[in-house]
Design a protein around this nucleic acid. Sequence first.
DNA 1: TATAAACACGAAAACGTTTGCGTAACTTTA
DNA 2: TAAAGTTACGCAAACGTTTTCGTGTTTATA
Lengths: 340, 340
Amino acid sequence: MKPRITLKKIAKEFGVSISTVSKALKDSHEISEDVRERIKAFADFYNYKPNSLALQLRNQKTSVIGVIVPEIVHHFFSQVIDGIEKYANEHGYSVMVCISNESYKKEVSNISVLTNGSIDGLIVSIARETQETQNFKHFEDLIKDDFPLVLFDRIIEDLQCDKVIIDDVGGAFQATEHLIDLGAKRVALLTTQDYISVGALRKEGYLKALVAKGVTIDESLIYRIEDNKNLYEQIEKVINVPNPPDAILAVNEIYAANALKVAKERGLAIPEDIAIIGFTSGLISEFTSPPLTSVVQHGFLMGQHAAELLINRIEHTAPEAFQKEVISTNLKVRKSTINS
Amino acid sequence: MKPRITLKKIAKEFGVSISTVSKALKDSHEISEDVRERIKAFADFYNYKPNSLALQLRNQKTSVIGVIVPEIVHHFFSQVIDGIEKYANEHGYSVMVCISNESYKKEVSNISVLTNGSIDGLIVSIARETQETQNFKHFEDLIKDDFPLVLFDRIIEDLQCDKVIIDDVGGAFQATEHLIDLGAKRVALLTTQDYISVGALRKEGYLKALVAKGVTIDESLIYRIEDNKNLYEQIEKVINVPNPPDAILAVNEIYAANALKVAKERGLAIPEDIAIIGFTSGLISEFTSPPLTSVVQHGFLMGQHAAELLINRIEHTAPEAFQKEVISTNLKVRKSTINS
DNA sequence: TATAAACACGAAAACGTTTGCGTAACTTTA
DNA sequence: TAAAGTTACGCAAACGTTTTCGTGTTTATA
């Protein structure tokens, strides 16, 4: 790579001092018009751009925000990143993305790499392993230093920082209510292990709706999918049984799509024999047949809000109270629940 | 945010010079064991980490690579980013992601922001608008400065830099061949406008296969989807006609899934009346019914290769010849072409 | 005991930038 | 013509780090 042109080199070229060049390029009236114009022309010709590192070091501000997500190949997370990037960009920030890969260790190392001065703030959705082991010291350390931090989606309730979450309880409530209103008596829940915060919250909404509708809770209808085992087989055990449920609420799109597949293979009519709803942010639900009724999560919006909270936190030193924003979901009704 | 601890502050604390502290923390034998250990304990207690900006400035190396993609909410691109991030991380680099949003202007500004000293190299897939207008000056400028640059997927053939592409021609050839072998006489092509490089290449593979199989080319079976118009309606005009094609090759998953939908709504049997194949890297094809036979693109692999090329270029100053790597596709046969 | 070697640290430059302040030289004012 | 003001630039510090070289003090060698 060719060495970049610097103030020093321009100064040498003109036999003036570095500060003269700096001022000339900034159109300072301190510099005579003649010298100023010649320096500007020269700099322009060589496409001078101030070295960002030097500026960042001097100004103690990088205008970069870090983002750590459990994975990026996931419609929801890429939507959130998209939202973050958009808002950040509009406000003069760039985005540095790291992937924890659901690993505690990688999350810690990501944070360590990012918080060595190269970013002004951090947006994180917590890795599965971290949620499992409940070791949050790396976040507590950040908070202790008042480092600007925003948690989204997979959050830790007790941490003193800004947060953005989906209305998981409300979304699950609405979906379950919809299923019961359509006549379902035995609504199964396909959820994650309890330590995943969003899974737990969606279960909460599901249970609330049952109670509200006067349906007795049947623990045997709650299935906690294990991530390291075969998904399809686990879902078969839900549907491919003597007395399958007459409705299913799945906490994500993949579970829902697989449930639909198994049900169809078993010869069940959808939605007549079994109605299915999934949480979603992807495109699968639209293209299954029948298309899946979905609890739509607005990832892009979530990203924008997270970025907004973070940038406010970075730029307003006044220590405002920490916010917790809740992004509403909405129920997109398709033919997996109503066939008309 | 609390001010971070620096060498200067530690030095003041111990009444020694900055260089002594620096050396002590690096376990230099120049510093007496007593002082060394005390300084290290102190630094450890206050969780000292060298300021990355200062190091980057001094070493003239950031260990960050920039990535510009047209969009991130797209399974293929997020897979590539995932691959880049993985390889980069394993080799001590971080990743800064920018999104051009298919806009020429944003692409230019992204490059401008990134190449002001804050990254060591750049990986780009070109925006649609840039491909359309054919204005490549921003890339030529980079190349003129020998700035490490790798183009992937949407590339510019004439540019002197490393490139990674999918075997678009081969993938389309194989898919078309498959359709013809199954008895198709009138294979339609659902492609993009010609200026999109991958669309053009896939058309080339399609045409090659027709020629190889002795099928006469029928230009009226080639449909160039326009991005700003309604997708569904455009696809209806392909299938919902008196004499629809008996097979379709779509250059992406969304086109294919919509074609499937339209065909089913028209009452066509799949694959008996009409067989469908789509290029893909997402999950939709797996969950349609019937599932779609797909030309699978290995985005993750592509990302890894792009990162490898870039990092080699960054670290080996010896000006090796520019490489053009081709990632093979493979045909995943599902029931939209063979029902058995 | 004089000299050489080892030890333990500090000074300063370098990376590239901005900016407050100082100061010559020149111009205006009284 | 002396005092004051203006013009046009340079100096130096600051951001935080690493590293080469220099140097004073102590210890070992002949």
